[in-house]
């Protein structure tokens, strides 16, 4: 199957610290892949490199959106990466607090809209129609994610779990082919995690979006992912299906430490 995201030998140095050490990773079309590892392993750094927030020291990053040509995305700005069709969420929620829920989702549509300053001032037909269309599409996304009841609420007033889902809604509004979720279940209770599980599966099956997620909740990772990549100290130490990862000695060592009795 075709890879939508293909990372080759990605390396990132912060001064003398090597945060990422020649990482190879790929996400296939329609796949849910997970990136796991102990705290400080470099998972979020990896996301930041892929989405253009950091400039990697070495390595190549390619994307291949379904039905389009394969493309190198090194050196693109974060907004250009999003425009190409990779959307992300953040580990610590980064919503636009003082905007309404609907506006937050409409922001995601920004890069798919064309209206400029003259259009905004003159409010010509094209702008009005675009605006109306975006409002409706955004509301449809909110409905799908289950946030329709909060449309006009300020984002900061939402309950925690809803804020996490709103971040996903905003990312989905950018019409991505690949969604990068950074610890989507962090701080959620069991019920919320279960809902998230269903939501992610639904996003894949209904929207045909591939997903790469960072997560610490092993139950969620094992049940959701098709393939898992494990990182430790900036290196990739294992990759494979959930079954393979569960029984991989290197992974167990990274998580639990060396077994003294053995």
């Amino acid at each position: 199957m075709e890879s939508v995201l293909d990372i080759k030998q990605l390396t990132m140095d912060f001064g003398g610290l090597r945060a990422l050490d020649h990482i190879d990773l790929d996400v296939k079309a329609g796949e849910i892949a997970a990136l796991i590892g102990p705290n400080g392993a470099g998972k979020t750094t990896f996301f930041n490199c892929v989405t253009g927030i950091y400039k990697p020291t070495e390595g190549d990053m390619f994307i291949c959106p379904p039905g389009k040509k394969r493309e190198r995305i090194n050196g693109l700005k974060p907004n250009q990466v999003t425009e190409k069709g990779m959307a992300r969420t953040f580990q610590n929620i980064r919503l636009f607090q003082n905007m309404t829920v609907l506006e937050n989702v409409m922001m995601g549509r920004h890069c798919r809209m064309r209206a400029g300053i003259p259009g905004a001032i003159l409010r010509n037909r094209a702008t009005r129609e675009e605006e109306q269309r975006v409002v409706e599409e955004s509301y449809a996304i909110l409905k799908k994610i289950g946030l329709a009841e909060f449309v006009n609420e300020f984002a900061k007033n939402l309950p925690y779990g809803a804020q996490r889902r709103l971040e996903i809604a905003r990312a989905m509004a950018t019409e991505p082919f690949l969604l990068l979720l950074d610890e989507p279940a962090a701080g959620m209770n069991n019920q919320e995690t279960k809902e998230l599980d269903e939501l992610i599966l639904r996003i894949r099956s209904e929207e045909k979006i591939s997903i790469l997620l960072i997560e610490h909740d092993m139950k969620l990772v094992m049940s959701l992912s098709d393939r898992i990549f494990v990182m430790d100290y900036g290196r990739k130490i294992a990759q494979g299906t959930p079954e393979e990862i569960k029984n991989n000695p290197a992974v167990i060592k990274a998580y639990l430490g060396e077994d003294i009795d053995a």
């Binding site: 989405t51 927030i53 700005k77 974060p78 907004n79 999003t82 425009e83 959307a87 992300r88 953040f90 980064r94 919503l95 636009f96 607090q97 003082n98 905007m99 922001m107 995601g108 920004h110 890069c111 905003r170 990312a171 950018t174």
Partner: peptide, 11 residues
């Protein structure tokens, strides 16, 4: 509201 999120949202 949030410069990093703003860029990541495609602005």
């Amino acid at each position: 509201e949030d410069e990093v999120a703003c860029q990541a949202t495609g602005i």
